[in-house]
């Protein structure tokens, strides 16, 4: 049971970081489908730079820098060059999937996966045995999650920036009349998304594990987007949705372990969290009617 709770948290942390990061863009009316790619880039750069320089912090710093650059490019494409945000976002993700695999083989001569020389500290060491033995599996970022949620909530719901982003997303005319520089605010939103996705990627690669593998995000960026919509663009509800999807994932993994001998195919169980995602997002959209989050 304790293991189950800890697994749920561990699996939720990257989703929540990516989800809350993506929320900045989505609230500003950008359906940021590049989150998946940004997470993957964050994971790879953390492992690559972290291993090369021997410091996980430099790795994360590098990941943030790379994601800021990628986010700026994405902003330039959709804001300045008026590219379609879905297609540009898909391009960004595809670029990251291919780019990380390519760079891994080019610089580290590894195919498929590589181990990391560094990992995030796991600050709380639980008792070696007994009920709480599993909490030591949680990384620093997992412990910082509540603080992160609080900061995002403050920024989005209790600051000028948050009001401006919401106005841009909901009713650009209002933002324009209020004298908001729409293009610059969108850039800020996307840069924040980039930073958060770098953290999400770092947690994924060096939080619990210490490895990077090709396409290791494996759709988590899209699940994070689903969490945003499921959470109707609210930071707290998005966090809860992230926890829920982490839970579904943990159920999948656990049943895989315990049902090992049964006749249920492994693939079917691995599919369950995604089926649950689709089911609940559909339910949410159906139930919410006119208050459904408007994303264009």
């Amino acid at each position: 049971m304790e293991q189950f709770v800890v697994t749920t948290i561990r699996l939720s942390v990257p989703l929540i970081f990516a989800g809350l990061g993506g929320l900045f863009s989505v609230r500003a009316g950008i359906f940021h489908i590049g989150i998946e790619g940004l997470m993957l880039a964050g994971a790879f750069v953390t492992v690559a730079i972290g291993s090369a320089l021997g410091s996980v912090w430099l790795g994360i710093g590098g990941a943030i820098a790379v994601n800021l650059l990628l986010s700026w490019v994405y902003w330039f494409l959709i804001d300045r060059l008026k590219a379609d945000m879905i297609i540009a976002g898909l391009g960004l993700t595809t670029l990251c999937v291919g780019g990380t695999a390519f760079l891994m083989s080019a610089f580290f001569n590894k195919r498929g996966s590589m181990t990391s020389q560094v990992r995030l500290p796991q600050p709380v060491v639980g008792p070696q045995e007994g009920l709480l033995a599993y909490v030591s599996e949680l990384s620093l970022l997992a412990w910082l999650l509540p603080l992160f949620v609080l900061i995002v909530w403050l920024l989005l719901r209790r600051s000028r920036l948050g009001l401006q982003l919401a106005a841009i997303g909901e009713y650009p005319y209002a933002a324009e009349a209020a004298g908001v520089n729409i293009s610059r605010s969108k850039l800020y939103a996307m840069l924040i998304t980039g930073i958060c996705c770098a953290l999400a990627g770092a947690e994924l690669a060096v939080g619990g594990l210490a490895a990077f593998s090709e396409n290791m995000t494996n759709g988590r960026g899209f699940i994070a987007l689903a969490a945003i919509l499921f959470g109707s663009l609210d930071p707290i509800r998005t966090t809860l949705a992230g926890l829920f999807f982490g839970l579904a994932n943990a159920v999948g993994i656990n049943s895989q372990i315990y049902a090992g001998a049964s006749n249920v195919p492994r693939q079917f169980i691995l599919m369950l969290p995604f089926a649950a995602t689709i089911f609940f997002v559909t339910l949410r959209g159906y139930a919410s009617g006119r208050n459904a989050p408007r994303v264009s």
């Binding site: 403050l154 920024l155 209790r158 600051s159 000028r160 009001l163 401006q164 919401a166 106005a167 909901e170 009713y171 005319y173 209002a174 933002a175 009349a177 209020a178 004298g179 908001v180």
Partner: peptide
Amino acid sequence: TLPPSFTVAEALELVSAKKHGGAFFS
């Protein structure tokens, strides 16, 4: 020009020239 889903206070704060409260408001 006030966004429909905002509360009155939020909408006014969005467009007002002076800030009420610091970086974060209650």
